[in-house]
Amino acid sequence: MIEVQHLTKRYGPFTAVDDVSFKVEPGEILGFLGPNGAGKTTTMRVLTGYMPPTGGKAIVAGFDVFEQPIEAKRRIGYLPETPPLYPDMTVRDYLTFVAKIKGVPRADRKARLDSVMERTRISDMATRHCGKLSKGYRQRVGLAQAILHNPDVLVLDEPTAGLDPKQIIQTRELIKELAGSHTIILSTHILPEVSQTCQRVVIINKGKVVAVDTPDNLTARIRGSETMYVQVDASGADAQGALSQVPGVRQIAVTETRGSVTGFEIDSEPGRDVRRELASAIVTRGWGLLELRPMRMSLEDVFLQLTTQDAAEPEVAHE
């Protein structure tokens, strides 16, 4: 549905997007993840036909965005980082204008408008001026604007920015609902959002794609070893000595000391579960075992690891 091939965008000497390629299948939600200034917005702007690329191409719903811009744009709904609202227009007038320029037939306009306002929960603000709306409403009017002409592809630049927790959940639900009939790319730097809504993630840093995979695979792939957190009611030195004797343990570090309680992070050989041995080593010595849990690497860690590596090799995995 969306195909980006070797996309490059330079602003003068500065390369904002460098040879980015990825594909999005119909009905999929793709998360676009990266630190600020990584090139997310630029990629989205190229994809929506706002600006032409310096090199490479973008194909949306079968149309090259630069060869057949009108056809491609008919099939794209775009929510930019700042919702593009006219402050002096009421919500209804604004959406009517958008419907006109997006080519919604006159006969369907009213029905479309009502159903979209219903879905994005802005019906109660229909007669309010866009300039007088709260951040949450602005964002939702922006979303309504993007889905108004029922496009095949939705490009959402930080759709939940500025919303309160309840609105964030509602917006995510809405995005998931839309996924079946629409193909969605959304950018964000809120990591839980990606694991909750997206089927696949593209991580981009300094204009380059550093990883493309499912959120689960990413967290699994990056983990070089298994890490356990163990909290013991015993003196630190004794426990550390005893636990490092357990077979399979590679490294042990004290992370916490509180009175007689000590917390350790224990790295073990990959693929080997040492929890039973750790537990029995503690219990047979008569110490209290207060906590024992595997420390899963969160997407956050993956993200940090991928985006802070200096000479990160671009790798495209598991298409």
């Binding site: 702007r45 009108i70 008919r74 794209i76 775009y78 593009p84």
Partner: peptide
């Protein structure tokens, strides 16, 4: 300034 130009330039308009 307000960014609404993004709406116009990404709509099917010449």
């Amino acid at each position: 300034r307000s960014g609404t130009i993004e709406l116009l330039l990404t709509s099917p308009l010449t």
